[in-house]
Computed example of a mutant assay.
Amino acid sequence: MQSKNHFLLVDFLKTFAAVAIILHHLSNYGQIAEDARQLLPGIMDFLFEYGRYAVQIFLVMGGYLAAQSLTRSEKLKNSRDVLKIIINRYLRLFAPYVVALLVTIACAWVARFWIQDEFVGESETLSQFLAHLFFFQGFLGLDAISAGVWYVAIDWQLYAILALLLGMFPGFRSLVWILTILSVASLLYFNRLTAYENYFIYFIGAYGLGALAQLCKNYPDQLVNRIAVICIVLAGLAIAVASFHQFWPRNLLAYVVAVTLIFFGDLAYKDQVRVHKHIQPHKLVNAILWSSRRSYCAFLLHFSCILLANSLYVGWGMSHLHDGALALALMLMAFVASWGAANYLYRWVEVPSRRIKL
């Protein structure tokens, strides 16, 4: 276990958002979701309706951490350096992503023996798989192989755009204004039109707020800090005014997360405490750290576990009982299995693959 300081809010939000998305998909897909809803209709409906808002947390966190990484980088001096950073980001995402795709394809193949449901989908094609490898599935209008893989493609788009903007405006003062304009335009217009949902402009609202939150305090140029604070305030006013016309909870959530990161994003804690004169890891701290590091892998693999849980439920004839308690138990098994599988994907694939870079 590492002994260095970590950032409590950052790790907690990553864990919370991953858990919320997994529970949202568990409440959405398959016979186990339908039968569990009979037992806990209120909770299941809540997870189905509001669990997807955790994507806003992911987006704000993504912008915050991307800006943190890119503004500290000394490799944005020319277009070649920017291109190298963008490619390295793709390589960082790629290895666990492609392994998770292959696992999902295998689990879907198993599921099709017993389940005839839209969420399982039809057999994957080679062109569909190749499109996913290069994040083109959304552009080409192809069905997603796994729930949530669209986010990986969008995350890379947003990171690439932010890197390009940082390379174009190295002083960052003009960048802050441009990022604010893009964010507000996205939150108030583009994010409300499904025609743009496969493109960065649909999501840069929340992502940009996260980047601005980082620039508010951690960039060495104090003028940039002040401009970023002004822009965050102006963005908040725009969201507030627009809410009188039509209230969008996801915009408010994104803004609240961004402001919270400004005040508490650097709140550090040690992952070891003294217990009976010995240095021992704190259990709660370890749990947050452990799950935070594996949140990306859990996000990638949880749909495979949902497929297998539904296959077990239907294949063994348990679905005929329509037993809500049994369905709920299988949901819990799928949830635990998602994090168990994520642990191995993290240790065996994600960590070793970090060495792959230009």
Rank of each mutant, 00 (worst) to 15 (best):
S3W: 13
N5F: 03
L9V: 10
T15K: 00
A17Q: 02
A20V: 02
N28S: 14
Y29P: 07
G30C: 01
G30E: 02
Q31S: 14
A33L: 02
R37L: 07
Q38V: 08
D45H: 15
E49D: 14
E49Y: 12
Y50K: 03
R52D: 11
Y53Q: 10
Q56G: 13
F58M: 08
L59Q: 08
G62R: 00
Y64H: 10
A66S: 15
S69C: 02
S69Q: 06
T71N: 06
T71R: 04
K75E: 08
L76Y: 05
K77I: 08
N78S: 12
N78P: 04
R80K: 15
K84M: 07
I87P: 07
N88F: 09
Y90V: 02
A95D: 08
V98G: 08
L101E: 10
L101N: 11
A106E: 07
C107I: 05
A108Q: 05
F113H: 15
I115G: 01
I115E: 03
Q116P: 10
E122M: 09
T125K: 11
L130D: 06
H132F: 00
Q137N: 07
Q137F: 03
G138V: 03
F139E: 09
L140P: 00
G141W: 01
D143W: 09
D143A: 13
I145Y: 01
G148T: 05
A153Q: 06
D155S: 13
W156C: 04
L158Y: 06
A160K: 11
I161P: 05
L165V: 10
F169W: 12
R173H: 09
L175G: 09
L179A: 06
L179P: 01
L182A: 12
S183Y: 03
V184M: 03
A185G: 01
S186R: 05
N191H: 14
T194Q: 14
Y196W: 12
G205Q: 04
G210V: 04
L212T: 04
K217G: 11
L223I: 12
C231V: 06
A238M: 11
I239W: 10
A242Q: 13
S243N: 06
R250E: 14
L253W: 05
A254N: 05
V257N: 07
V259T: 04
L261W: 00
F263G: 04
F263E: 11
F264T: 02
Y269N: 00
R274K: 10
V275R: 10
H278R: 15
P281V: 01
A287G: 13
I288Q: 00
L289K: 07
S292P: 07
S292K: 02
S292R: 02
R294E: 01
C305Q: 11
A309P: 01
N310I: 02
S311E: 12
Y313C: 04
G315L: 06
S319G: 12
A325Q: 07
A327V: 11
A327D: 05
M331P: 09
L332I: 15
L332A: 13
M333Q: 11
A334K: 01
S338W: 03
G340V: 02
A342M: 00
Y344M: 13
R347Y: 10
R354Q: 15
R354G: 09
R355K: 12
